[in-house]
Design a protein around this nucleic acid. Structure first.
Lengths: 244, 244
DNA sequence: CGACACCCAACTGGATCCAATCTACATAAG
DNA sequence: CTTATGTAGATTGGATCCAGTTGGGTGTCG
């Protein structure tokens, strides 16, 4: 299970609720920082599917020894981003398309569930924050900043779920989103199908503002459609024989 | 997210489907073996909630250096069984009861979903395997072998879901089950409420044999009830002031 | 008597070194 | 010419060593 580390993050977020000290400095060990950086690079497609990750090369890049790299690899492996075989090294995970769709279906199920909880607990303050994120997201999208769009897309979804106060569910969803993000960012490169998602987001926020329970089913459609669009994009890419 | 490592396991299982070589020797590195062993010990309650895990002590126990221990810790942390703070070491995770119930609710949702997929694909062969596991489970239960009951309980559930061929979902469920197992085993020590679950299991298997879709809702009740029973047991224990 | 500073022991974090294993290429036998 | 085998380079796995941080205990000063 990939979500232990997210639980910790979520917990840290929630600790901020009672802001005994306003300033929290985030301290992370080198392996964690490395894992963050490598995760981002995988998500951005810098390391492509099936590409081997060599410990020594990474260590050299970050100017550290191989040890923290090894620990970071364990984290990424637990997150499902890489698989490592004994004495043969690590490679970036490759998912068959059925499993990609399965991930989107899982997201649909879990995110609809948590959204139901969240809807009745949302305050206007929550919604303002979501709107703020959405504006940043739209901005990033128009600037074609893929990495930022990927990150903010999740931030927006997440902001809608926080009021539910369902820590385990949120951690689980975050773990799945990390995986789907890879493909969403890939899709952003390939197609312009994200336009549609942009409009969905506005609609979702509006429905939330009026506390309309129809938003749950709309969200399900939003996620499932995103999955289908992605698979279409991947298939046409495969058809046209473009290299990864 | 905790489920990357499970995905690998599940994939290895499925690889056996095309048995190019009948004999597969499982080779795991020391960190993996350590993680397995430590996970089992945490699940069995040998390391209790909040108890610190000292790298050096573990390393001495297993007669190895601290390095594989550190990597094993990363895995356990990703699985949500321990949390480690920088320069302060690792402690066994403590979950508030709302989060425990949340885990059971997640299981209910995910396991019902996958069971729906599995039901239409089950063969008699699958069911025979499940029955076999169930018999072992009943046997272990009558012998009061807590660890074995915990493991076989999951094996039984799992065997019902395998036909669904939903790898990601199964991996996710497995990750959650690892966490709930801790408390299920604790409950086995405290109460005799598992009798009820035993009968449930027979009922579930019978409904599966007749491919009755009512089994899905029955499963939901089975899991949710297990969660409630567990919380009751935990509360009465807390009331009576018994130490962990 | 209490508060603050300092110091020391225990532990974790990271680097370097050595051993085990895999891959690829070359070489030899059929 | 094909296939099997042996060997060298590369890469991972594990152990040992050193540095940095934490927390508690002691001593000193107000």
């Amino acid at each position: 299970m990939v979500f232990g580390v997210w639980i910790q993050q979520v917990n840290e977020m929630l600790e901020q609720k009672n802001p005994r000290s306003k300033y929290r400095l985030k301290r992370q060990s080198l392996p964690e920082a490395l894992a963050d950086s490598l995760r981002e690079r995988i998500l951005n497609g810098e390391f492509k599917e099936g590409e081997p990750l060599v410990q020594e090369a990474i260590a050299a890049e970050y100017e550290c020894s191989r040890m923290p790299v090894r620990e970071a690899f364990r984290q990424l492996e637990a997150a499902g981003l890489i698989v490592s075989k004994i004495h043969k090294g690590a490679v970036v995970t490759t998912l068959p398309s059925e499993q990609i769709m399965e991930l989107f279906e899982l997201r649909a199920m879990l995110e609809c569930d948590i959204l139901t909880y969240a809807l009745s607990r949302m305050t206007d303050h929550h919604l303002d924050i979501s709107e703020q994120i959405l504006e940043q997201l739209e901005d990033a999208y128009h600037k074609r900043d893929i990495a930022k769009v990927g990150a903010l897309n999740w931030e927006f979804h997440r902001s809608l779920y926080v009021p539910a106060d369902r820590i385990q569910t949120l951690a689980l969803i975050q773990g799945i989103n990390v995986q789907t993000d890879r493909y969403i960012r890939l899709q952003l490169l390939l197609t312009s199908a994200f336009e549609e998602a942009e409009q969905d987001h506005r609609q979702i926020l509006n429905l939330c503002r009026s506390r309309d329970t129809k938003v749950v089913e709309f969200m399900r459609g939003h996620i499932i459609r995103a999955g289908h669009n992605l698979l279409d994009a991947l298939n046409t890419r495969k058809m046209s024989g473009t290299a990864v």
